[in-house]
Simulated assay, not measured.
Amino acid sequence: MKTKLVILFFSIFLFTNCLPDDNNDITNQETTVIQWHLVNVSGGISGDNHSFEIDDVIWIFDEFNSRLIIQNNNDDDVLEDGLNSGNYDYFFINDNDDNLFLVIDIDEYGLITFSQDGEILTIDRTNQSTGNVADEYIYEFDKQTIVIN
């Protein structure tokens, strides 16, 4: 009899704890989006070095779908600003030295590094997994965290 009571109470406990909680309001959940804002591009044949306004070029890495979303609002065709607005597939390559290289669509884009505090992302196109490349660009991005309700 004692065993039956324990099983009954345990079953009731399990059943009540597995029911959905009606007090959780799904509409109040927050989503955090990390945006990388292009702030500087340097390098190239002529040794360019130019800065961008914070919202000119924004990269968002959708890690769940391996998609890079780019919002490029720069209208100056002379300035190097990376890729055009759009959605791109991406993945990373690790070399034997634990360096991380970004591949966008099927093209290797360059070496990825982060500042010590993780607030600055640098993509060095002169440094590829196969070796150094002359006359390419180095892109520097600032991290912006956006909370959406």
Rank of each mutant, 00 (worst) to 15 (best):
E136M: 12
N132R: 13
G131T: 00
N49W: 06
Y109V: 00
E63S: 11
V133P: 00
I70H: 03
E136G: 08
V133Y: 07
I138W: 12
G44C: 03
N24C: 05
F101N: 03
F91K: 12
W36K: 08
I120D: 08
D56K: 12
D97G: 01
T122M: 06
G118F: 05
T113G: 10
F101V: 05
S66M: 10
E53L: 04
L68P: 07
N17F: 00
D48A: 12
I104N: 10
K4G: 07
S46L: 12
L19T: 09
I104Q: 10
Q116H: 15
D25K: 03
E108C: 01
D48L: 09
N24E: 13
N72R: 10
F141D: 10
E108S: 00
L8K: 14
Q35L: 09
I58D: 08
Y137N: 01
E63D: 13
I138M: 05
D48P: 06
D21M: 01
V147Y: 05
N23P: 04
Y88G: 06
T32A: 05
L83T: 06
L19G: 07
T32C: 05
V103F: 02
S11W: 03
L79S: 08
I104C: 07
T3F: 15
N49H: 07
T130A: 08
F15I: 14
A134H: 10
I138D: 02
I93L: 04
R125K: 14
C18A: 08
N94D: 10
F15E: 14
D89T: 15
T145W: 09
F13T: 09
T31K: 11
